[in-house]
Design a protein around this nucleic acid. Sequence first.
DNA 1: AACTATTTTTAGTCTACCCTAAAAAATAAT
DNA 2: ATTATTTTTTAGGGTAGACTAAAAATAGTT
Lengths: 217, 217
Amino acid sequence: MTPNKEDFIKAIFELGGKEKVVTNKDLVRMLSISAASVTDMNTRLLKEELITHLPYQGVMLTEKGLLIANQLTRKHRIWEVFLAEKLGYDWNEVHADADLLEHVSSDLLIERLNIFLDEPTFDPHGGVIPNQDGTVPEIHSTPLIECKVGDRFKIQEVDDQEDFLEYLLYKKVHLGKEYTLAEIEPYDGPLTLETSAGEKTVIGHKAAFKIFVDIIE
Amino acid sequence: MTPNKEDFIKAIFELGGKEKVVTNKDLVRMLSISAASVTDMNTRLLKEELITHLPYQGVMLTEKGLLIANQLTRKHRIWEVFLAEKLGYDWNEVHADADLLEHVSSDLLIERLNIFLDEPTFDPHGGVIPNQDGTVPEIHSTPLIECKVGDRFKIQEVDDQEDFLEYLLYKKVHLGKEYTLAEIEPYDGPLTLETSAGEKTVIGHKAAFKIFVDIIE
DNA sequence: AACTATTTTTAGTCTACCCTAAAAAATAAT
DNA sequence: ATTATTTTTTAGGGTAGACTAAAAATAGTT
Ligand SMILES: [Mn+2]
Ligand SMILES: [Mn+2]
Ligand SMILES: [Mn+2]
Ligand SMILES: [Mn+2]
């Protein structure tokens, strides 16, 4: 296993490769490599039985591939917790370093780090950390876009795009914060969130797809 | 710069490439690669002006190469401190993980980590940590082999070979511990160290070259 | 000085990962 | 049902970093 292969498998996973076929085009976009390089990597991973391949359609992860994706995600997210909690990184800064560190982390290192961090369940943007055995804890959350006016909720997870996280930082939206959905403008208009202290925050319609909440009572 | 190049430059440094010509043979031994691969890497580093090359004699670091070696050593040793102090690694366990982590550490990461660790001066076996600008703090220490019977001293630094560190762990010799040199057997015989509590430790003649001490008053 | 042993270099290969350009297949538009 | 567009694959090539085997240079020994 090499860093490039690992990142490739993780990309397939993040594009839905656990349950559906992922196209080369999607991988080209995600990894910023040429289409020919995607085909190339596909054949290598196929040989190792980490993916299945439907010619001209795309690839899916095998059990073996899925295990690697989950274990890599575990490493990635544990590092993210470390960078955020111990080194004071903002949540939009953690990704790049974690994306490198994940590939050079022995099992010993990750398990020691996990204990040092008090065995966290979530990464800094609410992504659940897979278990050591590759299983993934089941977490229920609702996309903000599906909430109704009057719902009270807690921010549970947000999309981990760097610019989106920076936007949320600016909007002062952070994990665990509680809001009531005060208003939804029609015709795909913005949503207004309100804290119990009366602080109001306006969120664009598309952003509401990238925020996941835990509705209270 | 790639991990392999970085490790190669560090190997030249550790073999004395700051002040003398290092032979291919030494690099073959240290890196466990073929002689042809050493020649190969030499020509690549020469092209980047990181080393100077005397054909059939060996290589030396340029200023540029020395800077890279010191910066890499800084990263390596800061990681070693983290692994030992925060994650509870024994001093013989830190090297392998640090040897990988050093290559994927952004400047931000290292400086944050350095602060998190309270800006340490030494790594777990007493190696001095180079400064951010590549300069190296001057530390005076004496090889144990040069001490005389009756000298009182503190353990300052030890060779970082994994098996040697394990041996010292077993002998309960650790950094900062104070001893008096109680006896030296003639004909390259063993040395006997004694603590103020009367605890005696016998050290082989060759080991005394690999232990560096700070003589007290 | 000549032979021997060691070390370094050269020559030729290999794998991983990337590329561009062109061909082939699938999909969309007319 | 053709034509046009998009996507995937193939063909050919490049660089980094490793290897083995053989040639060349150096060092050691008689
Ligand atoms: Mn993340
Ligand atoms: Mn990565
Ligand atoms: Mn060290
Ligand atoms: Mn290294």
